[in-house]
Amino acid sequence: MSETKTVRITIDGRSIDAPVGQTVLEAARQHNIDIPSLCYHPGVEAFGACRLCVVEIRKHNWTPDWKQLVTSCLFPVEEGLIVETRSPEVMENRKVVLDLQLARVPNSDVIRQLAAEYGIHDTSYEKREDADDCIMCGLCVRVCDAIGAHAISTLSRGPEKYVDVPNKDACIGCLACALTCPTNAIEYIEEGNMRTIWDKTFEVVLDPVNKKPIATPEQIAHFSKQSGLPEDYFTKSDATRKKETAASFARVMFD
């Protein structure tokens, strides 16, 4: 086994060894340096859409006054990189971005709270009419793709772009989209053994012992097909088996 190569970078004055291939955001988070983000999720490919994780970089061979804003969730670490996560330029950018998001989703508690942390209590811009809470981060689309259902898509483009499930048949009712949505914009209802999401209602298989929902039959069939495990593997209540199930879920989801 070959040893992982590392590079030395500086984030906010702290010297850090980061493995080659890591992004600036991953390196920072690993060392408990906070960089805010909305569209990043460790389980899926980085996207670079929310622009909150933008940081300032300098390189050792650049002239001292030269710096650049880059997307930390996409920018790979390299030897000698100097990163500032809270420079005036970075903070200014975050404020404008959050101000814009607040105009887009004025009713979202998550965004209101985040904006308030940057001193923005009301947007400078025109609020979107009939606004839902979707910030177009694309996480639901990427998560749904990673699961292999490919039910969710962005449609149209530009300011008109929106997220939808254009093909309801493809949705397996797994809730992965709703649970990863950073602004809780995807609504679902769960009552007894019925679950409704994206205007589609599913029957849910309940745990034979504690009667809590396990999965929808569609979901079970999908994972069974992907993993090669028998369907009943996913419906057993046994605690050990549940752990195994979780492990297979993870494998299927993130492989």
Partner: peptide
Amino acid sequence: IPKSRILAVSTF
């Protein structure tokens, strides 16, 4: 190709 992807392309 998933149908959702085809619709994404045809509306983009």
